[in-house]
Nucleic acid binder design. Structure first.
Length: 164
DNA sequence: CGAGTGATTGTTAGG
DNA sequence: CCTAACAATCACTCG
């Protein structure tokens, strides 16, 4: 299904005809490459992969939190660059440049994200159970108590404090 | 029209 | 313990 799987041939063709941006390198290597030797950990073998309605997406790591902000900056400085890879590389490089203290706030947010993720997982977990039990709508069950995080900000500040 | 890709690193979870 | 998938982003590309 990988649309651009045949990039090799496609690139050769479009190379001279099309050239929208300077770096539209649509053909290199990426995570898909890992799938090569993958033992099907997630197993898309077929029926095993059950799609969940509200599958909680994984929380963005500290790097992603930083990247989110970095993207804006990068685009402001380089409005011409429209390549995600460019931002990725630049962001990665910058990220390594950051000190622990600078990464601290991002890590703090990442930690917070993880907390919510765990809650989502709990709610998601329950929902799965509920569905199996009832098999009908169970919105009541899906109630992640995220409200109990009133002191989350304090936690962040505290984290920064101790890290600083 | 849509799903997929590229690139970065971190995190997560299963084997 | 280790490995690999997957998280956001956005223009682009093939089917």
């Amino acid at each position: 299904m990988k649309a651009a799987k045949g990039k090799g041939a496609a690139r050769k063709d479009t190379k001279e005809a099309l050239k929208p941006v300077e770096d539209r390198k649509v053909g290199k290597r990426k995570v898909a490459l890992k799938a090569d030797k993958s033992s099907n950990r997630q197993a898309k073998k077929g029926k095993l992969a059950k799609k969940d309605p509200n599958k909680p997406k994984r929380p963005p790591s500290a790097f992603f939190v930083f990247l989110e902000e970095f993207r804006k900056t990068f685009k402001r400085d380089h409005p011409n660059v429209k390549a995600v890879s460019a931002v990725g590389k630049a962001g990665g490089e910058k990220w390594k440049s950051l000190s622990n203290a600078e990464k601290a706030p991002y890590e703090a947010k990442a930690a917070k994200r993880k907390s919510e993720y765990e809650k989502l997982m709990t709610a998601y977990n329950k929902k799965q159970e509920s569905i199996a039990d009832d098999g009908d709508e169970v919105s009541d069950r899906l109630r992640p108590e995220v409200n109990g995080q009133d002191d989350q900000e304090s936690g962040e500040v505290y984290l920064l404090c101790i890290l600083e």
